[in-house]
Design a protein around this nucleic acid. Structure first.
Length: 432
DNA sequence: TCTGGGGTCCTAGGACCC
DNA sequence: TCTGGGGTCCTAGGACCC
């Protein structure tokens, strides 16, 4: 059922270009026009690439396999600096939010917008202004797509990004003709919600472009694949099914890490698990939730076929809904003891809390009263950590020396969030 | 030697109930 | 002898996203 114009509602997608790389370039303008990549935790794999680097580094590439190429091509390499990216992201989002009627922060570098009852070409003009403002005030280059549905706004943004010269970084998909042309151009795996697996199955059925999906009715797609693909098809035809979403509390919160080295010692893993739990509990408190279950897992390096493999996981119920670092850590260590097997080289571990409820109206277990002391202690810990840094207050189970560290060989300074890292500008005496 | 982390939703299949 | 069928809940695993 094709939806015809005039479209009353338009969705916009504002998408930062190569966001992490753009954040690094902000303080290193000399890197403009040069190949730059940002690596994941532990300097493991490539998670952001400048346009120049995209030519020879695939997304997700293991960094150690590309060291020679980085050297040859003169690629500037950065360890991920999430404190910096998070801070720039929230500045960017507040600025965007102040310039549009409705916005949904979709990810660290993307926001959906909604425009109702407005003239699309006026909106386009405003989006070009917004793009300039963000570039000027935050320093981050944006791409913006506008269309009658969220899925099409993604398509529009992709076109704007692919043809910056012709679009000026903003593209409006506002007529059936333009939409059809876009869908004939767009590869099926580039449709939002269609991943590698689904794309492979679709291509085997002769669906190579987004437009080819229209040969199947939503009912057929639902039957052969799933409801989601049926919805995607309808959205691609201009029928809006996905509205802006308001921020919801997380249903699960996790802290997991790959270790820089293999660990065989129980005490070392236990210390990390306690730290992961403390971090998780702090995230829990920040969103005002309490958990009913905690999952702990440990695993060996799955890429090492020459070593014996083991993956252990266990989920334990809390005696009552809790956000206490102390109680959750106790449970986590109890779980770790259950899954621990001597003789393996552990490479990764993590903690996940689930079945979250609002902290102030948690389900009470009549037989195990919540420990009120923790309830008063935790906010104190959070305030002190916020004020003096995360390493100040630790639980008994954490190593006060913090003997372990992520590998972060190429970390940039925390320019915007740590006073000692703020850039100093020297102004000549006779300036201005 | 070195291969990320944090989320969401959907589906299939088993258990159980009436 | 006849061996139903629908609903619900739960879980594991798949698929997807950035």
């Amino acid at each position: 059922m094709k939806v015809h114009p005039p479209y009353r509602v338009f969705y916009g997608l504002a998408d930062a270009n190569n966001f992490y790389v753009s954040c690094e370039r902000l303080f290193r303008p000399d890197l403009e026009g040069r190949p730059v990549v940002v690596l994941s935790n532990n300097d493991g794999c490539v998670i952001s690439r400048s346009n120049e680097a995209k030519e020879f580094v695939p997304m997700g590439a293991p960094a150690f396999q590309y060291e020679d190429i980085f050297r040859e091509k003169g690629v500037e390499v950065f360890s991920a600096n999430f404190a910096l990216y998070g801070d720039l992201s929230s500045r960017m989002m507040s600025l965007i939010g102040s310039r549009v009627p409705e916005m949904e922060v979709y990810s660290i570098d993307e926001a959906f917008m909604k425009f109702e009852g407005m003239d699309p070409s006026d909106t386009e003009v405003r989006m070009r202004e917004l793009r300039r403002t963000v570039r000027k005030q935050i320093g981050i280059p944006l791409t913006i797509g506008l269309a009658p549905t969220k899925t099409l706004a993604k398509v529009a943004a992709r076109i704007a990004k692919k043809f910056p010269d012709r679009t000026g970084g903003v593209y409006l998909l506002d007529t059936p003709e333009k939409i059809e042309k876009a869908l004939r151009w767009l590869d099926i795996e580039d449709v939002h919600g269609i991943g590698k697996r689904l794309a492979a199955r679709l291509r085997r059925m002769g669906v190579h472009k987004a437009a080819d999906l229209m040969r199947f009715s939503p009912r057929q797609l639902r039957k052969k694949f799933n409801v989601n693909l049926a919805r995607i098809r309808r959205e691609l035809e201009g029928e809006s099914l996905y509205d802006l979403e308001m921020p919801q509390p997380r249903k699960r919160i996790a802290t997991t890490r790959t270790f820089a080295e293999n660990i065989t010692d129980f005490e070392e893993v236990r210390e990390r698990i306690v730290t992961f739990t403390a971090v998780t509990a702090a995230k829990l408190r920040r969103q005002g939730s309490a958990a009913n279950f905690i999952t702990v897992f440990i695993r060996t390096n799955r890429h090492r076929e020459d070593l014996p493999q083991y993956h252990g996981a266990v989920t334990l119920p809390a005696p009552y809904s809790t956000d206490s670092s102390i109680l959750l850590s106790r449970l986590a260590v109890e779980g770790l003891r259950k899954i621990w097997r001597d003789g393996y080289a552990y490479k990764k571990a993590g903690v996940i809390v689930s079945e979250l409820v609002p902290a102030n109206q948690g389900f009470m277990n009549l037989f195990v009263p919540p420990d009120d002391r923790h309830r008063r202690l935790m906010p104190v810990i959070d305030r002190l950590n916020a004020k003096y840094g995360h390493d100040l207050l630790k639980l008994g189970g954490q190593d006060p020396q913090r003997t372990w560290k992520m590998k972060q060989a190429k970390l940039s300074p925390a320019y915007t969030t740590r006073l000692s890292d703020v850039i100093r500008v020297r102004v000549p005496r006779n300036f201005a």
